[in-house]
Design a protein around this nucleic acid. Structure first.
Lengths: 133, 133
DNA sequence: ATATATGCAAATAGTTTGCAAGGAG
DNA sequence: CTCCTTGCAAACTATTTGCATATAT
């Protein structure tokens, strides 16, 4: 099983590489589609999976919404705004907690997904304005 | 808008109360359905939402699979086996981290979802056996 | 040459919704 | 008597899959 460097795979990878931030598969498909209307949705989905499995990009699992993809491979966690959905990187928070949890649970090969949610500064402002009215 | 105590709502709540563990909406529907084949899937889904919103039960958001529901309302986090999917409670891990994250992110009203994954003791045993063969 | 990758369309799965009928307060 | 809740079926959405064709190596 050898990987092939197709035009489409390169387009998908480039699309992640040149935008900072966090995007769903469909958002990435849409972005690509405006530039190259020929590439298919299935191909974008398949390549995102592939690239994430190969660790060339990072897949971020979100509760209650689609996985997102980002180019930042460094260890870190995420914060999402409960109003507007904006996602930002935080941390990394406490890698050591994995060892602690390994001891108390008996599970091995611990990984974690830490997701914080809150109200982002922009939405806080908007809420204050609404109150004043 | 006033809550009504329907027979179906009581059945759904009871079904959570009397089983410890973590279940998807559909698992709960199936369990109820064997006892009362009359109750509909939509009703079970709606009532689980309702009861979770009312904090009578807890909704646990899982990345990449359906939300689960549990009767344990105490503050805690979760650990899921990457092989068999078993879920167990852990923690609570570090409530204080929320304040730290509030400072560095500028977000307010921080909540978190910590999900750990690993290989559960039972699956560890099975893996060892497989190696020996 | 040959196995991997693509594009299309259809399938899937889990959940939600519209609506008419039922029933709790 | 109200209007919240139910049951049914249809709708929905994001993602995956089967298959014939194209293409990288």
């Amino acid at each position: 099983m050898q990987r092939r460097n197709t035009k489409q795979r390169k387009i998908v990878l480039d699309s992640i590489q040149k935008h900072m931030g966090h995007f769903t598969a469909d958002e990435i498909y849409l972005r690509i589609h405006t530039e190259d209307p020929h590439i298919s949705r299935a191909t974008v989905y398949r390549n995102l999976q592939f690239l994430a499995d190969e660790q060339q990009i990072r897949r971020v699992k979100m509760p209650n919404s689609s996985d997102m993809y980002e180019r930042n491979l460094d260890d870190h966690d995420h914060m999402v705004c409960r109003i507007c959905g904006a996602v930002m990187d935080v941390g990394p928070i406490h890698s050591r907690v994995d060892q602690k949890v390994e001891k108390i649970s008996g599970f091995s090969d611990i990984q974690h997904t830490f997701l914080f949610s809150g109200i982002c500064p922009a939405c806080q402002k908007k809420l204050k304005k609404q109150k004043k009215q």
